[in-house]
Amino acid sequence: MDGRGRAAAGGPAGPGRYQLSHLEAIESHSVHIIREVAAEFERPVLLFSGGKDSVVMLRLAEKAFWPGKIPFPVLHVDTGHNFPEVLEFRDRTVDEVGATLLVSSVQASIDAGRVSEPQGPDPSRNRLQTRTLLDAIAEHRFDAVFGGARRDEEKARAKERVFSFRDEFGQWDPKNQRPELWSLYNGRHRQGEHIRVFPISDWTELDIWQYVADEGIGLPSIYYSHRRTVFRRDGMLLATGPFVTPRPGEEVFEATVRYRTVGDMTCTGAVESMAATAEDIVAEVAASRLTERGATRADDRVSEAAMEDRKREGYF
């Protein structure tokens, strides 16, 4: 009665008798969290962008309920500025898992007048996602929203609970969080409030890549090295495309690159890399001297507290 994972593939065993490896330990913890949510909430949803963290989270959800199906839908908040490879991957993966995919689009929020397109050249819709997400939560009456945030990503995230309470406005109050003890998660809330749940809080970028390699998990092709037409802006390599235009003086060239995060095309930069497999990337990440967000995300460069400010408003 095999699944599609490690043992079936003849992967590495744990370190010793009655001992789990660190990846097995954090995997088990994540599965425990996901099952608690399915059992205690009426309408959970899992945020899925096609990025590596959400792909790992989806695999963990699959494991949690196997051989049953994942008992909640998957939601993509679509900025309309996606890498086409990622959208194709999203549809295929959700289909393979047998989950229900919901898409909430930032374009629809703009068309409905809920938010306005930012002005200026190459506008990023990154911040607009918050409104679209909160509207989707209200529309579907979701009471638990799984996110793939990790605490090693960013300072504000390092302080966030696994079960993170949001008030009726979707706001996070970092100074007034519920204490979280043992594995006893408190998801109690009133109508209109909800809980953001971060089952991979304790995973690091390296853990994610080791897991992707060990489990043979598929990812969008842009995570692996490929040739792409890019230009340099603010020290990052941005791809040319329908949503990003080089400004005068920004020289366009072709390079072998890969992406460390997958986001809005307007604010996600590539790094030069020859890493063509998950194993190559494990080696590269282990040697890296830059965080993935610092290296490739313009949205986090706004200020020291850019993430905290966005999170307070209800961002992922």
Binding site: M1, D2, G3, R4, G5, R6, A7, A8, E62, K63, W66, P67
Partner: peptide, 8 residues
Amino acid sequence: GIDSFDGP
């Protein structure tokens, strides 16, 4: 039996 996604 004891099951997991990764096998018995």
